[in-house]
Design a protein around this nucleic acid. Structure first.
Lengths: 255, 255
DNA sequence: CGATGGCTTGAATCGGCTCAAAGCTTGTGG
DNA sequence: CCACAAGCTTTGAGCCGATTCAAGCCATCG
């Protein structure tokens, strides 16, 4: 069920997560933030949990910004085997310039309820041609997304099930932190074990046993939809998680 | 061993592979091709087979274009487990805008002897700001690279060893075809079984058995460094290879 | 209160890994 | 032109991580 809603007030209680995200690369001026608000806090679309957003084969017509909720990007083999190739968290940009390609090579689906802004490329182009630092920030974000995709490749190719799940949790935790959505080591966690299985390339049953192992090792603790990373250092160690691939740290101040 | 060579004449016997590559997305004018030649056929670097090009942690200072040879991009865990996250074939662009990031999150190494052009972003920016169709072609190429990375993620997460290797071979074959480097189903193939193992996330021993299986199934045939895909349709079938993720077909003519 | 979706468990099985040795090729230097 | 080394490929045997299948449990929600 797709509904169009005008979310005019998203911006006031919770800062625009896109501005928050890009602020991790360059520190943005008030004018730049206002520009991002203008891009993002307009007509939005809401998708209920577990609903499709776009399907592989659909025309690729707009860029999408995640305002709230979790979504995933997945690909499927003809026989149905499905791999999640990425998660979208608030502040994420689904694909810069996708509109150039005519057809989606993967699907997007909401995990929890999701609010998204769609942006046409004309408008986007005109914004970044006026604000060169925003342009740089968007390119940066895009490069980080590629780096994440490479890390996922690495994750699936070389890590054991235990390490993989640990790595996924570390990445999600850090990415949520970047948009102010973790409360220390505690986070809202809508993923089912089946979601983790599809992202980790492991069977659901084995995810279950792996999560038990992580709990027994004192690395995580779950109560309902909340996940606590009870020993973040230990978890990162277990995963060989090295956050450098996320390229944070405002190294771009000089511009 | 790194040597600087001026390859002034690369362009005349073999067309500039970059122009050939981008020509698969948009059909380029003579002026556009000349511009690409100007970008690419200048001072180049040659790396011998099996030598490092950049290492994880190095400063990320330039874009790179592959003029000839094969290279790979890989990441390594602290204990040495190594995953190839992508191959670079002639005509490939190592990373648009990498220079924005300060540090490489992965390494590049030559597989066969390789010739590369390095391009500074200032020069690159000025070129694409003058030639909007080239800009579009470069963005397209960049989106295709992301799509390839997603497909690799899918490959590692869901396909069996047999399917994975088959898929890799299909992809390589098609990508070589795009730059005129396959001779029908026959191709020059410098990868060792160890290379395939690192790309497929499988052990070398198992790659060996898998290649035997592919041979027994009549799908491939090897003589020395040559690989023949003796039953391309069968191979694609076995791999569930769907070339749509490479987004070919000059759908961009309208620009 | 029943239904639905997610989590947990056990047992049997299998795909792919490890280790270790041997067989091939290719290139190099004498 | 041969001999040897180095690197790549092949083989076998035993093992282990992860899968499959099938059933039961638990929580939530209409």
């Amino acid at each position: 069920m797709i509904t169009n809603v005008n979310l005019g007030r998203v911006g006031d209680r919770n800062n625009n997560p896109l501005a928050q995200k890009l602020g991790n690369y360059l520190s943005l001026t008030a004018a730049e933030i206002a520009t991002l608000d203008g891009l993002v806090l307009r007509k939005t679309r809401r998708y209920e949990a577990r609903h499709e957003i776009v399907r592989e084969g659909d025309p690729a017509c707009t860029m999408r910004f995640m305002l709230s909720g979790w979504a995933n990007r997945y690909k499927q083999l003809p026989d149905g085997r499905r791999q999640t190739v990425g998660f979208f968290l608030p502040g994420d940009i689904c694909d810069l310039n996708v509109a150039i390609l005519k057809v989606m090579d993967h699907s997007l689906a909401a995990i929890s309820a999701v609010v998204i802004t769609e942006i046409g490329d004309v408008e986007f182009e005109s914004t970044i041609s006026q604000f060169s630092r925003l342009k740089k920030a968007f390119q940066w974000e895009s490069l980080v997304n590629m780096a994440i995709q490479r890390e996922w490749t690495h994750n699936l190719g070389q890590r054991s099930a235990f390490e993989r799940i640990a790595h996924l949790l570390c990445e999600i935790h850090l990415r949520l932190e970047l948009v102010g959505m973790s409360n220390g080591n505690l986070l809202e966690f809508p993923l089912t074990q089946t979601d983790l299985a599809e992202a980790g390339g492991i069977s659901t049953v084995h995810v279950n046993r792996t999560m038990q192992e992580l709990r027994r090792a004192g690395l995580i603790h779950q109560k309902g939809r909340q996940l606590e990373l009870t020993n973040l250092e230990g978890l990162r160690e277990a995963a060989s998680f090295d956050p450098r691939y996320l390229h944070l740290g405002r190294q771009g101040e000089e511009l």
